[in-house]
Design a protein around this nucleic acid. Structure first.
Length: 357
DNA sequence: GAACCGTGGGG
DNA sequence: TCCCCAAGGTT
């Protein structure tokens, strides 16, 4: 078995040296061998953005953040609303709140130096088990064992693990830790994730190109697509609400009225257009006249649907031009619609605004 | 442990 | 169209 492990490490790393992806935040093996070190700030930023997010989706945000805030001190000193607006569209907005809090903790509490030990990393907001190991490996090239969804897929196939996720996680962690290469931890961590992303894909994996083909129990059995086995998922309920878009100005000068959502919960800390609560019983909604934030000439502008992680939202959108005689509701302010059509708004709110344009 | 928390791409 | 999925963390 130990011979197998050595062979697997060496095959995976040889494949990665040849076929691994070049990514903006990644130090390639030849760069690492030449003594070039990764920037822990850049690695951390990329890891937070990549949580539950694809590389193509995160990449432009990564470039934007590094350009706006090149160091952890710059990010720590940025107004939080600027950080939230820059994150808009990436989703899971607790990541952005934690990102800002983590930057402040590192900048002000740790003199701008990211910890390299697991305990120190885990203590920072937004850094959990996976991310601590990933930063330790990719940024510091220290021994670690990353277990993300890619690694879970690879490991359950290699060992043909029948237990469903998430209960199989402890077994997966053990197997992954046993395989991890202590001599090239940074390259190994990124190699096994690349393997999952490029070769060992959820559907139609490219087993013929896999450096671990002969070591893979599922491949030998021919049932690799059965893994990982997952627990059944719950149905998504539908929730209904009314959104109100107050606008002023026209064309490129048009603005809409927004407010900031409370910190906790869905879209916490993000901008929204005024609206009702979101309820499962559409019949329980108030009338638009009762619910409107201002007494204006409302017209129904249409409806939008947006699917969140655990429910589907259907908003009826009402629109009205602002009446200069009216006074703004508490906490409300105007934002321009033009720059990239309601940039800075989360997607559901962007859809509501666009229903009016 | 389970619920909560976004979004967009691919089959 | 619908369903699956992603470099997870927090409570």
């Amino acid at each position: 078995m130990s011979g197998d492990i050595a062979a697997m490490r060496s095959r995976l790393l040889a494949w990665y040296d040849r076929e691994g992806r070049t990514l903006p935040w990644r130090i390639r093996p030849e760069e690492r061998a030449a003594g070039r070190a990764a920037d822990p700030y850049a690695v951390w930023l990329s890891e937070i953005m990549l949580q539950q997010t694809t590389v193509p989706h995160a990449a432009p945000y990564y470039a934007k953040f590094l350009s706006l805030w090149p160091t952890v001190h710059d990010l720590a000193n940025a107004p939080r609303e600027d950080v939230m607006a820059a994150w808009a569209g990436l989703g899971y907005y607790a990541r952005a709140r934690n990102l800002h809090a983590c930057a402040q903790a590192v900048s002000r509490g740790l003199a701008g130096v990211f910890p390299s030990d697991l305990e120190g990393l885990r203590a920072l907001p937004g850094i959990g088990e996976y991310t601590a190991h990933a930063i330790r490996a990719a940024a510091f090239n220290l021994p670690a064992s990353v277990v993300d969804a890619n690694v879970e897929r690879v490991i359950t196939r290699i060992f043909r693990i029948e237990a469903p996720l998430p209960s199989a996680k402890p077994q997966i962690r053990k197997a992954a830790a046993m395989l991890a290469d202590p001599d090239r931890p940074g390259d190994y961590a990124q190699a096994i994730m690349d393997l999952g992303a490029v070769i060992c894909t959820p559907r139609a994996p490219s087993c013929g190109s896999c450096p671990w083909e002969s070591h893979c129990a599922a491949r030998v059995a021919g049932d690799q697509e059965r893994y990982p086995v997952k627990a059944a998922k719950k149905a998504k309920p539908v929730r209904h609400g009314i959104a109100f878009v107050v606008f002023r100005g026209a064309g490129e000068a048009r603005e809409v009225l927004v407010r900031t959502r409370p910190d906790k919960g869905l879209l916490g800390g993000m901008l929204e257009v005024p609206g009702t609560d979101w309820v499962e019983d559409a019949g329980a909604l108030p009338s638009p006249e009762e619910a409107a934030p201002l007494a204006l000439e409302w017209r129904e502008a249409g409806g939008i649907t947006h699917v969140f992680t655990h429910f589907e939202l259907r908003l009826t959108v009402f629109a009205a031009p602002f009446d200069a005689k009216a006074s703004l509701p508490d906490g409300a302010r105007w934002v321009a619609v033009h720059p990239i059509r309601a940039a800075g708004l989360p997607t559901a709110m962007k859809k509501a605004v666009q229903a009016v344009l």
